[in-house]
Amino acid sequence: MSDKKIRVLVAKPGLDGHDRGAKVVARGLRDAGFEVIYLGLRLTPEQIAESAIQEDADVVGLSCLSGAHMSLFPTTVKLIREKGGKDVLVVGGGIIPREDVPKLTAAGMAQLFWPGTPLDEIAKFIRANVGG
């Protein structure tokens, strides 16, 4: 694990255009030594899952601020698993009401990052949990 850079795919599912957070996190992880693929916005869960497999991603980071996370996040996780990404660590962020967090973790998300989370904390979480 130590010589191979961890591959992180950052993507925005759905129609939401607020990409400040996704871009800042993508750049922060790149500067922290990860190999980052920023897939962009307005993507379907299908497209994201497909890319995660093709790119052999270790981690998929999802961002959604439109309120559609309860439908888009679990669908994305499900499709990644169906396509063979059994160990892909899926994390997310955005405008996520607290009461939704347990439901999202139950659906297979490893972590939901609260607004205001330092970049360093996200990097640490990924290093500690990837492949595990």
């Binding site: 759905g14 129609l15 939401d16 307005r42 379907t44 601020l65 439109s66 309120g67 559609a68 309860m70 439908s71 888009l72």
Partner: peptide, 16 residues
């Protein structure tokens, strides 16, 4: 530019 019954609208209807 999508109607509410378009596949890309799934989960987004009435949201923001």
């Amino acid at each position: 530019g999508y109607d509410s019954d378009h596949s890309l609208a799934a989960g987004e209807v009435g949201k923001c």
